[in-house]
Structure formats: structure tokens, C-alpha cells
Design a protein around this nucleic acid. Sequence first.
DNA 1: CCTTTCCACTTGTTTATACAAGTTCTGTTT
DNA 2: AAACAGAACTTGTATAAACAAGTGGAAAGG
Lengths: 243, 243
Amino acid sequence: MPQQKYEPIYQEIKREIETGVYKAGDFLPSENAYTEKYNCTRNTIRRALSMLTSDGYLLPQHGRGVQVIYSPKDLRSLFSIGGIESLGEAAKRNQIVITTKVITFKEMVADESISMMAGFDIGEEVYFIERVRKTGKKAIIFDTNVFLKSETNGLTKEIAEKSVYEYLEHDLGMTITTSRRRITAQKATKKDMKYLSLGSFDFVLTVEGQVFNSRGVMFEYTQSRHVPDQVCFIESAVRQRSK
Amino acid sequence: MPQQKYEPIYQEIKREIETGVYKAGDFLPSENAYTEKYNCTRNTIRRALSMLTSDGYLLPQHGRGVQVIYSPKDLRSLFSIGGIESLGEAAKRNQIVITTKVITFKEMVADESISMMAGFDIGEEVYFIERVRKTGKKAIIFDTNVFLKSETNGLTKEIAEKSVYEYLEHDLGMTITTSRRRITAQKATKKDMKYLSLGSFDFVLTVEGQVFNSRGVMFEYTQSRHVPDQVCFIESAVRQRSK
DNA sequence: CCTTTCCACTTGTTTATACAAGTTCTGTTT
DNA sequence: AAACAGAACTTGTATAAACAAGTGGAAAGG
């Protein structure tokens, strides 16, 4: 392919905003100015800028310019949900050490309860994994994952202790592409109370979702139950012209 | 402008997916086929398709085609958070009647607590509004809004009872463009317990955010406290090539 | 001085084209 | 029959060019 030019441009401008070269309220150089700087066409620039827009960093203004609306203090959250990011990756980004303890690791056949919860057909072979994630001594997340065995063969308890995604992407050569997530608040279950550092909380923030691979196969169901004061999710949206 | 061609295409394909013309697992016609159908270039088609992709409807597969991954049963949620949608709009989309009761409507000057919460500077004139939203007899959402008076002049209690956004967009000619939201689970406050139909719940799902207008001015802070069993938020994400 | 007009800038949309690269099937060769 | 090569598809990226439309300031007019 004519190679990806927009990616490094996106990264560079993103970093310039995050490091304060451009502050909230500032206008970026015009698209035409960027075409000269990066020696490419407006389309390529616009692609990079539109990615930053959907990240919530920029606000393009017709006829005026592109304004920065990102301020670093917005980063009050540990884990941003913009994008599919594994917990390990988010932790790395925030320079936090996460330890993982595997509570359950078993191969099984999807019964009705698994099917209802995860969306797999009854009778399919799956890996069922429960893990607790800790920062220091605080257990902050209770993860439940169900993987379709036919797509993720060779998963072990040892891999689950480290990074499942790294195994899938790196060792199996799988490409993870799209995910849909549902965010709710729920009462803490007995398991939550047993394994999580809930303190005085009796509820959790739950994120559940289905993950697809590049073949369009829904191969994973994931549910993360978070201690409320340790997480928040940031989402940015662009309102469509209402007409 | 050469007029918006992609919008109606986006809408039509979206509707075709939602009504089951194309089901989950199916492949859409190729981009080239669409160019003939809609008499436009691939670029325009690709734009419409990429919008559906970021909506979580489609999964494009290099060399194979574009697969539908949306299934209608995913719509277990009342309110989708993909996009900036006012509660009234979401209710309309789901054919639900929402009534609004204004608890507080006052003009005031931002003090430190308002400034901390909403992000406005101390001393700025604002409208402070608290509202309860009901479906039937159930009070499901406690809304707090702080509007910058200089940008939203003329707001009244009567408008707050109906639709603030309609007033801003229609009567003031304002364009609302970008918003960033933070989702957390929180303990119910005394106000929550007083006004919301919490049942046995003692916590709420909170969505707070800042809203910008087309001039890049952050003119609104909004906080919605939801009864947990009445709402969930759906978000879709596309994983970037990790490389 | 104030208003209007216009120009030079900005971003927004579309067309047209070219080539890169992944996938699938077909036909040939071994 | 199996393996390989290639053609014919698919989506992905980039270039180039044109025009639409909003914004803001400068110039021209009263």
C-alpha cells in the first residue's frame, strides 16, 4: 500500500497537544500549512485530524480553523474506554503496575447460562476464565472472560496470568478489530465482595462486551467489574448536524 | 458545498441493517457495487460505511468484504451514548414518553463549588438547573445542568421543562458540536434518594460531561444520575493496528 | 465614522485516478 | 490428486483537483 502516512502524523500532533505545545483554546496550523510540513495532501492531513477529533482532542470550525479542546487535567481517569485497550496496556500507559491472579481457568462446553451471558451457542467449547486484577494490595477489577476455543486454541492458565491479548495477537497471529461494550452499575455479588477491595461500596461498575476478530467471528465475551472509586470511563462524541 | 451525499447513503444502509435486510454475518455489496447504485465515487461510499463501522454496525475485512456484525437484540439499552443525544431525543427514538420536573432553576454567579464541579471560572454568571426525568411514575434520572449565561441567554424555567437543546439550537441558532463524558458509579446522595425511584438501590450510574458549541466555548456542564436498572450505555470501539 | 462589499483565508464535500495488499477461485502444472 | 501460479475480485491508502461555504479583515463606498 502507499504506506500509512497518517499514523505518524496523528501520533505527532497528538503528542504535541498532550505535551502542551498547543493548549486548549489554541488553533492548530491550517490544513494547508500541514500539507507543506508533512509533504502530503490535504486528505491525509484531514484523516489524521479527524482521528484526533473523534478522540475528543480537536474541534474543527468551518471557516475558522481547528481548535484544541483537550486539557491534560481531564485525565482524572485511570482507564479510558476510547478504543479497545487491554488492562495491561492501559496500566502501562499510566505507568501503573498491575498484578493478575487467576481464580478460575477451565475448559468447558457452553451451557445455557454461558450462552445467555456470552452469546455463544449452546454446545460450543469455550475457555472460562475468572481473574482478579490488583494494583498493589487493592483488588480493583474482577474479570470474567469466555473465549471460543476453536479460535483461541492453546490458552493456558499461565497465559491468563500474563496477557491473553498478547498471546492471541502475537503467537496466534490473530487480529482483534471491533468490540461493542455495555456499561452498567450493578449490585455487588458475593464473588465481588470476596475478591474485590470494595471498602464500604456494595456496588460495582460493570463493562461487558463482545469482541470480534478480523474474520468477523465473535470469539470473546468479556465482563469487567470495577471498584467504583478506581475507575471511570471517558467517551467523546460528536453531535451530528441536526438539520 | 457539493452537497452531502454520504448522509442519505449512511441512513439508508443503516436502516437496511436495522430492518434485517442484511443480518449479522452477511456481507454487504462491494464498494464498487454501491458506487453504481448510488452513482457516486468510492470515497463517498467509504465515508458512509466508515460511519457505520464506528457505530459498531460493520466490520470491514481487507480483501474479503464488509461484514454486518449488528444484531437487533443488542438493543437492550434504553439510551445509547454513541453521539450527543438529549434525553428527549433518545426517548422519542425509543417511543417512550418522558416527563420532566424542574426542581431548581436559578441564575447565579459561579462560586468555588460550581467552578470545581463544572469547570467554569469563578465569578461567571450561570444558570443552575436541577431536573427529574420520569417515565410514567418512575423517576429514572436526576439531571444537573450548569449553563454559561453569556452563551445561553434567555433560558427560563419553562424552557427547562421542555427541551433546552431545542431552544439553543432552534431559537438561539446555536450549534452543539462536541462533548466529552465521564461515566462512573457513585453512592446515592440524599437528593438521589429523595427524588429518584431507587427501589432497593443505594447507588447511581453517573454520566457527567462538558459540552462545547461551534465557537469552541465550553458552555455547559451536565451531570445525569441514573437509576441503575433503567439505563445502560453502549459504546463501540475499533482497535487500532497494534504494530 | 459607519456600513457594505469583496477578497483571501479557513474547513467541508465530491470526483477521479492510481496503486498496494489481502482473499478467493480457477486453471495449469507436477 | 495435490501444489502452485495467476487472475479477478475485495478493501486500504494516497494523490490531485475542483468547488462549496463559513469567517474575518481589508478596501471601498456612503
